[in-house]
């Protein structure tokens, strides 16, 4: 498990960091009573992550 996490972080640190920012903000949104704010990221964050994942899989 630790190895997997390390391998993912080594290869995709930026994407993990980006998703973390969203997750952290979503958690804060839940804490302050506006849980729906996190769902905005499904439209504004997730497309970039999907795009990243697709291109990361495709060899250039």
């Amino acid at each position: 498990m630790v190895k997997l996490v390390r391998r993912v972080l080594a290869a995709h640190f930026e994407a993990v960091f980006y998703v973390y920012l969203w997750a952290n903000a979503s958690l804060l949104a839940v804490m302050v009573g506006r849980p729906w704010l996190g769902a905005i990221g499904l439209v504004t964050v997730l497309p970039f992550v999907i795009l990243y994942r697709r291109t990361a899989r495709t060899p250039r």
């Binding site: 980006y18 903000a25 949104a29 302050v32 704010l37 905005i40 504004t44 964050v45 970039f48």
Partner: peptide
């Protein structure tokens, strides 16, 4: 810029609003 705005659309309303 677009990616930064994408994540800020979640961060800013949560953090700059009440009660934080």
């Amino acid at each position: 810029g677009a990616m930064a705005v994408g994540v800020d659309l979640v961060i800013d309303p949560a953090v700059s609003g009440e009660p934080l």
